[in-house]
Nucleic acid binder design. Structure first.
Length: 662
DNA sequence: CAGTGAGCGAGCTTCCGCTTGACTT
């Protein structure tokens, strides 16, 4: 054992380091970087366009300790294996680690350092990766630098413009500002929308215990003849419902309608429904938001616990890939539990269709199918079950449904009824989903039916819905904006900045958000457009392939962008934030009107004559319960960080405050 | 967690993406 080679393995996640440490022998030491180690300085731009985009990196203050450990570990090792994630950011982390080691007071020999990558955490995977050990991919690193530098230049140029033109402390950036823009534009659509009423006509039938409905497709006299099939209804003709815009016309039509129907056509179609792909970060957050009403932040915190307990694979991922080992485990589990007919015949693989996916990890799945998470605390159990079901179901057989459509002829109209029947549950047995559609009785062409009831039902056209956590994350992902690690933080940021408010789980822009968005779109439309990120990613791909020099990319961008910053700073007007009037006189000056403004700590009431009159008052949002100390009204307040808490309306006389309703 | 806006012109705010922690007051 005298010549045992000591190896240092560098990964990103501490949990991964622990897991992998168990697999490998004592000749390995595993250290986690815990994310990025070096970054641009926080207090200044750190990029000099005048000096060919020279970049000043520094060790992030909270990473000094980890860097020290890494450098000490490197001294003890005969070889150093950089095994950070196999993606753009991971490559950059490896590059920075290497730089730190080579530029230490006692430099590490470059020949000792190599870059490896693996997707599975097993000894075999690591040893396999070792055989393919290579060097850091400098083109990929340049793509990361380009991404980082561009985001810095945009963010640190635009934000100060807002400080001058709107208010101190505001921020703008490639991702957050587009996110706000989405919410503002949706709100405009909603404001513009005019709701209209319309009427649908339904006939209701009874067959034994069963009640089913048919809807009007076509108005008018229909020829009904035993020997002659109506040509119109044959072939591939598809129908869509007929609606009435006028209530009276709808009711008149129903009044004159005969209650006699003749079945003209019955069609049955077998449909195979396949399970959805396993969870990515974005889909996990969307589902937790829809089903449990959790924010992205909450979901990620619970997922982090599951990950640390070793129950699930890594929870920040854009990949839908499942390892062979997992797939086989799922298959044999399904076979044992439900029978062979419930296992899909050929292994089901999914492909990624989201833009800019980097696929450094697996999909989110249980690490062991036999663990049903029974001992978990309630919230963890809910999320774990969601993950478990969705992943295991991917290897189950398709569900077989029978869709039936029945066309009925009335002498004054054509009606259609549809139903669905489950023939074989397949994967639905695992997910527990069901179908709620109506079940139709057996019917055949030529059958006569008598309607129990016919009625016109009132409907209303509805405006596009406000964004929820789920739909917002979904839109961002579709546009390739943001990454698994940033969906949740971005949504927090725009709330902390008071650009948007969350009301009953839905996002609404504040007056500040509307004003800032208007200003940015007017002066910097291109950077804050949806295609901007897509174009940027295209260029980054070229850089990664060595087909484009990243400094040229920066130069081309900065040349145009900087001019706009200069022009906006010099020429644009100061922005006035729209205020909501309360319709009351100011109690101090008796002249001005009370208005609601959005400040650093949320909404507050002030006088419209500011700065001549400095009256202020709290904006009280009633929490719906009484203060437990003094019995006054409890109100909703916000911390500097945007977190909601409850306080007493009698503050400062009564100092009661709490995070939860008592 | 108890304030807020404007401008004064001290010194400060700000980006995105990678990873957790120390907190539940």
């Amino acid at each position: 054992m005298a010549d045992m080679q000591k190896k240092l393995l560098v990964v990103e996640s501490p949990t991964k380091a622990r897991t992998i440490g168990k697999y490998l022998g004592s000749d390995y030491e595993v250290i986690a970087t815990v994310g990025h180690l070096r970054d641009l300085p926080k207090s200044k731009m750190g990029v000099d366009p005048e000096d060919n985009f020279r970049v000043d990196y520094e060790i992030s203050p909270d990473k000094k300790k980890v860097v020290k450990e890494l450098l000490e570990g490197a001294k003890r090792a005969d070889s150093i294996l950089l095994a950070t994630d196999p993606d753009r950011e991971g490559e950059a982390i490896s590059w920075h680690v290497k730089w730190l080691m080579e530029n230490d007071k006692k430099p590490v020999d470059s020949k000792k350092i190599s870059r490896i990558s693996f997707h599975e955490i097993t000894k075999e995977a690591v040893e396999e990766a070792l055989k393919k050990a290579g060097d850091v991919d400098l083109d990929l690193v340049d793509a990361q630098q380009a991404r980082r530098v561009l985001d810095r230049m945009v963010g640190y140029s635009l934000s100060p413009v807002l400080w001058r033109k709107v208010r101190r402390g505001l921020s703008a950036g490639r991702v957050q500002s587009v996110t706000v823009r989405l919410i503002v534009e949706r709100e405009k659509e909603i404001e513009k929308f005019k709701s209209e009423k319309f009427y649908r006509i339904f006939a209701e039938f009874k067959s034994g215990e069963n009640v089913f409905r048919a809807e009007l497709m076509k108005v008018g006299e229909q020829r009904v003849h035993k020997s002659q099939k109506l040509e119109l209804f044959d072939g591939n003709y598809t129908y869509s419902r007929t609606i009435f815009e006028d209530k009276k016309k709808a009711e008149d039509y129903v009044k004159t309608l005969s209650d006699q129907y003749l079945i003209d056509k019955v069609s049955g179609k077998e449909v195979h429904r396949t399970p959805l792909p396993p969870f990515t970060t974005s889909k996990l957050q969307q589902n937790a938001s829809r089903r449990m009403g959790w924010s992205g932040k909450q979901t990620m915190s619970v997922a982090q616990h599951l990950y640390e307990k070793g129950l699930i694979t890594y929870h920040r991922t854009d990949s839908v890939y499942l390892s062979d080992k997992a797939v086989n485990e799922f298959r044999s589990y399904i076979e044992k539990k439900f029978g062979a007919e419930y296992v899909v015949k050929t292994v089901r693989h999914y492909r990624n269709n989201s833009k800019n996916a980097q696929e450094a990890h697996e999909a989110i799945r249980p690490t062991s199918v036999s663990n049903l998470g029974e001992d978990l605390e309630a919230r963890e159990k809910k999320l774990y079950e969601m993950i478990w079901k969705r992943a295991v179901a991917t290897q189950a057989a398709a569900a077989i449904l029978k869709n039936t459509k029945v066309l009925m002829v009335n002498k004054d109209g054509l009606f259609e009824s549809s139903g669905v029947r489950m023939m074989f549950p397949g994967f639905l047995k695992i997910t527990g989903e069901t179908y709620e559609d109506q079940i139709l009785p057996e019917m055949k062409v030529g059958d006569k039916l008598k309607a129990k009831k016919t009625a016109a039902e009132e409907y209303e056209t509805s405006p596009p819905p406000r964004y929820t956590d789920a739909s917002l994350i979904s839109s961002l992902e579709k546009q390739g904006i943001g990454r698994p690690s940033t969906y949740a933080p971005i949504i927090s940021t725009i709330q902390i900045r008071q650009y948007v408010d969350k009301d009953e789980g839905k996002f609404k822009p504040t007056s500040l958000g509307v004003a800032v968005n208007q200003y940015l779109v007017t002066n910097f439309d291109d950077v804050l457009s949806l295609p901007f990120t897509a174009n940027m990613e295209e260029d980054l791909d070229k850089v990664a392939l060595g087909k484009l020099d990243w400094k040229k990319m920066m130069k081309d961008f900065w040349g145009i962008f900087e001019k706009k910053v200069v022009t906006a700073t010099k020429e644009s007007e100061r922005v006035k934030v729209e205020v909501e009037k309360l319709g009351k006189k100011c109690p101090d000056c008796k002249e001005g009107e009370l208005v609601i403004r959005v400040g650093r700590f949320g909404k507050f009431i002030s006088c419209s004559r500011f700065p001549d009159c400095k009256y202020t008052a709290q904006f009280k949002e009633l929490a719906g319960f009484k203060c437990p100390d003094c019995g006054g009204e409890a109100v909703v307040k916000k911390t500097k960080k945007g977190r909601k808490f409850y306080g007493c309306a009698n503050y400062p006389k009564c100092k009661w405050a709490g995070w939860k309703k008592p």
